[in-house]
Each structure stands twice: as structure tokens, then as C-alpha cells.
Amino acid sequence: DESNKPILLPNESQSFERSVQLLDQIPSYDTHKIAVLYVGEGQSNSELAILSNEHGSYRYTEFLTGLGRLIELKDCQPDKVYLGGLDVCGEDGQFTYCWHDDIMQAVFHIATLMPTKDVDKHRCDKKRHLGNDFVSIVYNDSGEDFKLGTIKGQFNFVHVIVTPLDYECNLVSLQCRKDMEGLVDTSVAKIVSDRNLPFVARQMALHANMASQVHHSRSNPTDIYPSKWIARLRHIKRLRQRICEEAAYSNPSLPLVHPPSHSKAPAQTPAEPTPGYEVGQRKRLISSVEDFTE
């Protein structure tokens, strides 16, 4: 099969070098950035008060330690540790928490760990991170309901609301924008112990962030949302095809390698009803078989 044979790379090609550099910018793992907010007593309706908090309760602090690993920003190499735009020179604080497994990295933009500057009256330095995160974990210690939209931002799609209760338990629920209701189930609340709260809140936030990324990708319907490693695979396959075309153009005697095509017509299947918005969006999480067989 010609399409699977190794090909020689061009010795000097600026377009090839640019493509390789672009490939280096696509990590081999999925990345997520999640905002974390603490809401104190009497702050449920005040964005400024929430963003001005420099610490929270003892249970909130224990919750943070379970979310991930504490890292010092100045020691991080952005090409190895995903920071979601946090500055490593102290502009966004000294520490944050991050978490990773074999296929993804997540960083938490924690408002109480970011510096509260006197010259920044409206807390814009914090909002440029927190307001651009799709998902926020809100530790609501106010005793009042927290409403979506209290923290203004164009991309605040989903809130994971943590409400501490007695007996070391917590109520965990989801809020989302109306255009996200087909992807996020907000109907079920959970009672979770303090011990298990970081794991549950983190998983709910990661799932909500993946759904938000799919939702946000609708602005470019021709580019369905893939995982990062599938995006790398697609980029490599496009690069291979372009090299083959350039080689055939410079030397017409060489065969032009095309991806294999299936001449056999697909079997006719009964027509199915058109899937609704929710089903269609969830299918976009699934990769096409052509990603692996071309």
C-alpha cells in the first residue's frame, strides 16, 4: 500500500519547517483550565467582593489541597506544564494547583491565590483569567444561592456549585447557560463527603469543560472538536499529503500518493430520524474511523 510507505522529508523547505513548528504547539495530551472561586458570607451577589477574597475557610483550604498538586509557578516550564496563561514571573501569584493523568493536564485558576492589587480596583487582572475559563468551581460559603452570571465573562458556560453542609458533607450541583443544557445535566445534585469532594468536583468540572469545548467549536462548523492527539494525527497526515504533492510536482515521474478510497458502495440502511441538538453535539466527541485508517 503506497499510502503507508515511509517518505523522504525535504531537506530545505520553509513550509515544512513551519508545519513542524506548528505541530510542536499541539500538545500530545488534552488540556483544561478551571476557575475556582470562594464566596464568603454576604458575597453571593457581589463580583468585586468575591474576586477580592485572599483566603477562605478551613474546609475550603482542605478542598484545594485535594484538587491537585501545589506547584510554584516560577519553577514551571510552560512547554511541559500546562498553566492556561498564568504568568511565571509573579504577575498572577506564586502558587497554583494542577492535576494530570496519562492523557490530560488541568490547571486551576484560583482567585484566592492570585494577588489582590490596590491599583486594580475592579480586579481585572484576576478576571482576565477567571472570566475566560469555560467552567468555574464555586465554593459557596455564603449561606445564600449563587446565580450564574454573578461573575461577568463571555465564556462562563458552567458552574460547579459546592455548598458546604453539616457533618462534613457538601451539596454539589451544576448550573449552565441555556445554550449548554443539551450537553450538561443540571437536574441531579449530589451529597458528597469532604473527603471525596475534590475528586467529584474535579471530575464534574473536567466533563463540563470538555462539553464546553465542543459547544464552543460550533463557531467553526468545519472543524469538529477532536482530542489533542487526534489533532496531531490529522496535522501529520495533512503534512504527509502536502509533501507527496510537492514531490510529485517537482518530479512528475513519481506517483502521487493519495489516501486509500473505498470503491465499494456502502450498504443501504433504513433512514433514521434526524438526531436532535443534544445527540449531534455528543457525537462530535467521537472520532471518525477515517482518522485511523487513511
Rank of each mutant, 00 (worst) to 15 (best):
N53D: 02
M104R: 02
G66A: 02
S57Y: 01
G280L: 12
V135Y: 00
L256F: 11
L9H: 10
V138H: 00
V192A: 02
I286F: 12
D92K: 11
E41T: 07
P164M: 00
L285N: 14
Y97S: 05
D118S: 13
S217C: 08
L22Y: 10
L165C: 03
F16S: 06
D79M: 03
R232L: 05
C76R: 11
G66N: 04
E72W: 12
L73W: 15
G182A: 07
W229M: 07
M204D: 03
K127F: 08
P255D: 12
T163D: 05
I26P: 07
L256G: 15
I26R: 06
V160G: 00
V289M: 09
A49Q: 08
E278D: 10
G280W: 05
L9N: 09
P255Y: 07
L67G: 00
D125F: 13
I286Y: 10
C176N: 01
F108S: 01
K121E: 14
S19L: 12
D120K: 09
G93T: 11
F199Q: 03
I243M: 13
C98G: 06
G85A: 11
D133C: 07
Y167A: 04
Y60R: 00
C124D: 15
P266N: 13
R232E: 11
V289Y: 11
R123C: 15
F108G: 02
G85Q: 09
G153R: 04
Y167T: 05
G40W: 01
L113T: 03
V81T: 10
L70I: 06
Y249S: 08
E278T: 07
F146S: 01
D125G: 15
V160P: 00
Q21F: 07
L48V: 12
M104H: 12
P275T: 09
K80P: 14
L83F: 07
A205F: 00
N11R: 08
N170L: 01
P275R: 10
G149I: 02
F157K: 12
R128T: 09
T31Y: 11
E246A: 05
E54S: 07
M104Q: 14
K152P: 11
R128C: 05
K74N: 12
D87R: 15
L148M: 15
P78Q: 14
S253D: 15
E144V: 10
N11S: 11
L174F: 07
P255K: 09
R59Y: 00
R282F: 09
D194W: 00
H215F: 11
E144N: 07
G85N: 12
K190S: 15
Q21I: 04
E62N: 12
L174T: 06
E54M: 05
E54Y: 03
L130G: 04
L22E: 15
N196A: 07
S136Y: 04
D223N: 10
Y38W: 00
D145N: 07
P275Q: 12
I50Y: 03
K178M: 06
N170R: 00
S288H: 09
P198G: 06
T61H: 11
I7P: 07
E54D: 08
K33G: 05
N132T: 15
L254C: 12
A189F: 11
Q203L: 11
V160D: 00
T116Y: 07
K33M: 11
T116K: 12
C76M: 07
M210D: 01
G149M: 04
I161V: 14
V289N: 13
Y139Q: 00
P6L: 04
D102I: 04
I161A: 02
S44T: 11
P6E: 11
A111L: 03
H100A: 14
